[in-house]
Simulated assay, not measured.
Amino acid sequence: MIQLQGITKFYAGSAGRVEALSGIDLKIDPGEIFGIIGRSGAGKSTLIRCINLLERPSEGHVLVAGRDLTVLDAAALRAARHEIGMIFQHFNLLSSRTVFDNVALPLELIGMTRSAIEERVTPLLDLVGLGDHRGRYPAQLSGGQKQRVGIARALASQPKVLLCDEATSALDPETTRSILALLRDINRRLGLTVVVITHEMQVIKDLCDRVAVLDGGRIIEQGDVFSVFTQPQMALTQTLIRDVIGHETPPGLLERLSQPHLADGAALRRLFFSGQSTDAPLISELSRRFSVDINILHGQIDEIRGRPFGSLLVLAKGEAAQLEAAWAWLAERDVRVEVAHVQ
């Protein structure tokens, strides 16, 4: 559905050329929800705006549904943008227009009749749960309701692609969950291809099928969400997912681990489980098989799309050879074992 080929974007700065994106190659399949994550300044918003050419790439090509947008003239590009909806962090609603009229605005601009607009907008308001709010104004709405208006407005032109630029970062956690559930429902019902820009890995975990990690205007890692969460390759990716999958060691535990009598002669390891290994009683079997004592200090089990994964921080005591054999035994059962550093 979307192909980015060699996308580079640079600006003229006071100290010379500033490169916001550098050689981005990306393929997003029809009907999937694709996430792009990175820290502030990584180039995320520039990248998503290149997809609909709100930002024109300095180099490279943008193909949507097989059509190269970068070679279209102004009229053809305007027509192509009708197939690409976009929702924003700060909603961008017109305060003087009702919910209905905000959603209707893009249809008015293309000259659609009032009866046709009514026929198009009414079911969209029902879809986003605002059917009984059509006559209200933005000032009368909560943040989540405003974003639902923004989503309905983006869907008014019946796009094939929906771009979401930090669409939940201005919302509280409970409202964020409801908006993500709505986006999943829209993706399933309408078959839309959804591209999500965010700095929150929880959004990626809860919503997306695949993810690309952006850093310094370059994609440093990408893959299906489960693989990226359970086997992150880059240090930045590991940092981004740390809060989501329970890698942060509580301060009280750090203090206890600093006591010599607790850590003396013990091996501190972090164990990463996924799939079937999450449900198997591996720790108890390991203790019996290798005559080692395992103290579980901290951990979390979670799931992505019904597939479980998790990690445990453990303190193990036993003969050195037995411990090494135990770690190798776990590795054979698809449990990744890492030396834990908690300082």
Rank of each mutant, 00 (worst) to 15 (best):
D29N: 14
R49M: 10
G135A: 11
S40T: 12
I179A: 08
A76R: 14
G85L: 05
A20K: 12
V161W: 05
I37F: 08
V99P: 08
R288N: 13
F226V: 11
V121F: 01
L77S: 11
V62D: 05
I304R: 08
D25P: 01
A316R: 00
A20T: 07
E324N: 15
L207F: 10
C208E: 06
T193I: 05
I294F: 04
P138L: 06
D206Y: 00
E319V: 04
Q158A: 15
T122Y: 02
G131T: 07
G111N: 00
L240T: 02
Q5R: 15
L163E: 07
N102A: 05
R136V: 05
V99N: 05
E83N: 15
G310F: 06
R269N: 00
L315S: 13
V18H: 13
L240M: 14
V195S: 10
N187H: 02
P173S: 04
I179L: 03
F10R: 12
V211M: 10
A321V: 13
R120G: 01
L323V: 12
G60M: 02
I37W: 09
A263N: 03
A212F: 09
A316I: 15
A325D: 10
K146R: 15
L53T: 14
Q238D: 07
I179R: 07
I28Y: 12
I204D: 06
A170G: 05
R256N: 06
A79N: 13
Q5D: 13
I220T: 07
A42P: 09
P308G: 10
L262M: 11
D302R: 11
K160L: 12
S22G: 04
D101G: 01
Q231Y: 11
T122W: 06
K44E: 13
E19R: 13
A325M: 09
L182K: 08
A80V: 02
M86V: 08
E174I: 11
N102C: 08
T168Y: 09
S115T: 14
R242F: 01
